[in-house]
Design a binder for these strands. Structure first.
Lengths: 197, 197, 197, 197
DNA sequence: TCCTAAGCGAGACGGTACGTCTTGTCTTCCA
DNA sequence: TGGAAGACAAGACGTACCGTCTCGCTTAGGA
């Protein structure tokens, strides 16, 4: 049996879901930058004040959608990996597969601004996800000159991942998830190897 | 002796210079996104319509300033390089050195939006600069699996370069230009080597 | 008890009232032409977009204020008049009396542009007010040569009325409402008599 | 033989004539209010600074054209008049005849704003033209109650004249000059008679 | 069953940046 | 040296969006 609080939550969840879906459907139609709050409200049939009750702005809604999507990814199993430093990028294939379910529609042009937003937040999320691995492995690094700070290294991984992801979606490449993942690995692994072996 | 056209140009050049300088000085004080056109006008002592005569918007002014800065870079000599594929990133040290002259002041926070703009345009410029080298060298590539498209590869180089550049400026790192350039090379060279050797 | 619609109306009415009062208070301080929309907004403490929601421009606001003022006039009783054609100008004394309550302050200079606007609209309003009388009485006209068209005649009455009204306000004449009304009648009645007797 | 001064004058006169003709030709095409200085410059093939050398603004150019037109009127003979007070409106027929030569073209819509401008200036000119007559005749007035000030009376005559003139032009009435003059006299004479007999 | 509090839609509102437009001044060159 | 060309500062315009707000309606839970 549900408590009052839970029922209340159900209404709230439904509204938030409407908003997220409205935003994603709009992203399929036009550039993220040119979507304005009113577009979302009209699509979701939600009042202006309701929107601002739940989200501070458009970007926050986008980030909330991202978290939503990554939530299901996080419970996935880590694949056994040949090299220990490959664990740093364990997330890539699951995310590509997750995205794969949504990327077919029409345009899905996140554009330069949307990419920047996602980049900023995914980086924060990834940083948390891989912080331990990186720290652990960075202790063993010995070959790079000059030493690469953990901060810039995490940014590099996230940046390259988003780059490939975005190219995959925007170019509507026919590559399957594991194909684009191989591409990502081809770009990133040499640098990882150089840093950690 | 100057013609009428050239004198006219001199007035225009002066106005555009005032605007570029105003924008750069403002970037040192606050986030690029929060700079509004009127701020620039007040700083440059320029009328609103004059601004729009020369530039379509704030971003165009920023890009114009970037081109200005890169113009001096482009005339530099290519350093002889140990490996042929290193020619692809010949631009990195000159650009770091060029930026170095401007990055000290106070904040210099380009921020998420400004970074996106610069990224977008620098990538376009870099793409042109290295297109020949990439094409030439891509003929010889033999090791990567899967093959990496020229398009995504150029984006990868530009993206990583901007990432390092931005980190350098925003973190106010004490690294000298050649130090940060080494850092950039440490990130990018392993992947280049894997792609072209 | 009020419905939602009526409450909404109350907010809107209040905003429109603020704007009208701001404009009238500004007219007392400077020339109508030199009043810009921002002056009105600052005085009324109203946002720019709100202004344009309610009024297309400054002139429309002025006209709206005129209608407001004339609304109270229109419910007045027609005074019994010695001559039937005097009914055509029944409105003059009530309007002079209405204006009299507002014309003291300081400058109240409507100026050339404002006069033109008011003229244009008051003429339209007056035309409607007296259309019936004119038509009725024009059936009986017999003396003028050439016949005067109804159109030009109405314009003549309105034009002369505005002329006297404007002179009264701008010259800050000490004449009381009925005094200036007598002046108006002295100018207009001979022509009316000639036209309708 | 002409002196340098005279040659210079001729050039100046030519430029001013070009500007006047440009304005009048534009008035035939669109509303006076919506004509901007640049329209006149383009039509007259005159530089912006040249315009402002000769005229303070658009209105001054219009007034200058009016004076031009009235200059030829002023040399006309006063017609003998049955009543002495009719001398006050001696100008009406000559002006109607003068205008008659220009009013056929297409639109010739002076509009509300242009009318106001002309009104303002014609009133000044007429005031000078008839000042003596009015003063002379006002000494003899005995019938009006209340007494009508010379100021408002002149305005009344000018206002009514412009009204009829404007109606004649804008309605493209087929009335000949003496026909519209009769109309004007039908409106104005009863009041004149009442004031001066 | 009624009551009460919260979620909600609708949309008015103040604020503010935008890009456009026009004005009147100024500078430079040319005939 | 006067006029054409047109860059320029100034600033008003009307539009667009934002984030805040006020208002009633709905709705379900606890009284």
């Amino acid at each position: 049996m549900l408590t009052g609080k839970q029922v209340k939550d159900r209404r709230i969840q439904k509204t938030q879901k409407l908003l997220r879906e409205a935003l994603f459907s709009l992203i399929h139609e036009k550039n993220y930058d040119s979507i304005v709050v009113k577009d979302i409200l009209d699509r979701a049939n939600v009042g202006r004040s309701t929107f601002y009750t739940h989200f501070g702005d458009k970007d926050e809604l986008l980030v909330s959608g991202m978290h939503d999507m990554l939530r299901s990814v996080q419970v996935m199993e880590l694949p056994p990996s040949a090299k220990p430093y490959e664990q740093i990028i364990w997330f890539s294939l699951p995310v590509f597969e997750q995205i794969n379910q949504h990327r077919h529609a029409s345009g899905a042009r996140i554009g330069i601004r949307g990419r920047a937003i996602i980049h900023e937040h995914l980086q924060k999320i990834l940083a948390e996800l891989i912080a331990d691995d990186v720290k652990k492995n960075f202790q063993n690094r010995r070959k790079t000159t000059p030493p690469i700070s953990s901060d810039i290294f995490v940014q590099y991984v996230a940046s390259t991942f988003i780059l490939v992801l975005n190219w995959w979606v925007e170019s509507q490449s026919p590559l399957p998830p594991n194909g684009v993942n191989d591409l990502f690995r081809a770009l990133i692994l040499p640098t990882l190897a150089a840093a950690f072996e």
